[in-house]
Computed example of a mutant assay.
Amino acid sequence: MKMKGITIIISIFLVVAILAMSGCTSPTVQPTTGPTTAKYPMSITDDKGRVVTIKKMPERIVSLSPTNTEVLFALGLGDRVVGVTDYCNYPPEALNKTKVGGITNVNVEQVAALTPDIVFAASLTKKETAERLDSMGYPVFVNDPRNLSDIDKSIMNVGRACGAEENATRLCNEINASIKAITDKTATLNDSQRPRVLMLLDTYDFYVAGSNCYGDDLIKIAGGQNVAYKLDDYKAMSKEAVIDADPDIIIMPVDQYSQADFEKLRNGTEDWMTQLSAVRNGKVYAIASDPIFRPGPRVVDAAQDMAKIIHPELFK
Score class of each variant (00 low, 15 high):
Thr169Leu: 12
Thr169Glu: 11
Thr169Met: 10
Arg170Asp: 03
Arg170Pro: 03
Cys172Met: 06
Cys172His: 02
Asn173Pro: 06
Asn173Lys: 13
Glu174Phe: 03
Ile175Ala: 00
Ile175Gly: 00
Asn176Glu: 11
Ala177Pro: 00
Ala177Cys: 04
Ala177Asn: 10
Ala177Phe: 07
Ser178Ile: 06
Ser178Cys: 05
Ser178Asp: 15
Ile179Ser: 04
Lys180Leu: 14
Ala181Ser: 15
Ala181Tyr: 05
Ile182Met: 07
Ile182Gly: 11
Ile182Leu: 14
Asp184Ser: 12
Asp184Asn: 14
Asp184Ile: 11
Lys185Phe: 13
Lys185Val: 09
Lys185Ser: 10
Thr186Met: 05
Thr186Phe: 09
Ala187Ile: 14
Thr188Trp: 10
Thr188Glu: 15
Leu189Ala: 09
Leu189Arg: 08
Asn190Leu: 13
Asn190Ala: 12
Asp191Glu: 15
Ser192Glu: 12
Ser192Lys: 14
Gln193Tyr: 07
Pro195Val: 06
Pro195Gln: 07
Pro195Asp: 09
Arg196Glu: 13
Val197Lys: 07
Val197Asn: 06
Leu198Asp: 04
Met199Tyr: 06
Met199Thr: 07
Leu200Tyr: 11
Leu201Tyr: 11
Leu201Asp: 07
Thr203Met: 12
Tyr204Met: 14
Phe206Ser: 01
Tyr207Asn: 08
Tyr207His: 08
Tyr207Ile: 11
Val208Asn: 04
Val208Lys: 03
Ala209Ile: 03
Ala209Arg: 02
Ala209Gly: 13
Ala209Ser: 15
Gly210Leu: 01
Gly210Phe: 00
Ser211Val: 02
Asn212Ser: 05
Tyr214His: 04
Gly215Val: 01
Gly215Met: 01
Gly215Ser: 05
Asp216Ala: 02
Asp216Pro: 09
Asp217Pro: 08
Leu218Glu: 01
Leu218Ile: 03
Ile219Ser: 01
Lys220Gly: 05
Ile221Asp: 04
Ala222Phe: 02
Gly223Cys: 05
Gly224Asp: 03
Gly224Trp: 02
Asn226Cys: 04
Val227Cys: 06
Val227Ile: 11
Ala228Asn: 02
Tyr229Asn: 13
Leu231Glu: 08
Asp232Phe: 09
Asp232Val: 08
Asp232Gly: 04
Asp232Met: 12
Asp233Val: 10
Asp233Leu: 15
Tyr234Pro: 00
Tyr234Gly: 00
Tyr234Cys: 01
Lys235His: 10
Ala236Arg: 14
Ala236His: 08
Met237Pro: 10
Ser238Ala: 09
Ser238Asn: 09
Lys239Trp: 12
Lys239Cys: 12
Lys239Ser: 12
Glu240Lys: 04
Glu240Gly: 02
Glu240Asp: 11
Ala241Trp: 09
Ala241Arg: 12
Val242Ser: 04
Ile243Val: 15
Ile243Tyr: 01
Ile243Glu: 08
Asp244Pro: 00
Asp244Glu: 13
Asp244Arg: 13
Ala245Trp: 08
Ala245Glu: 07
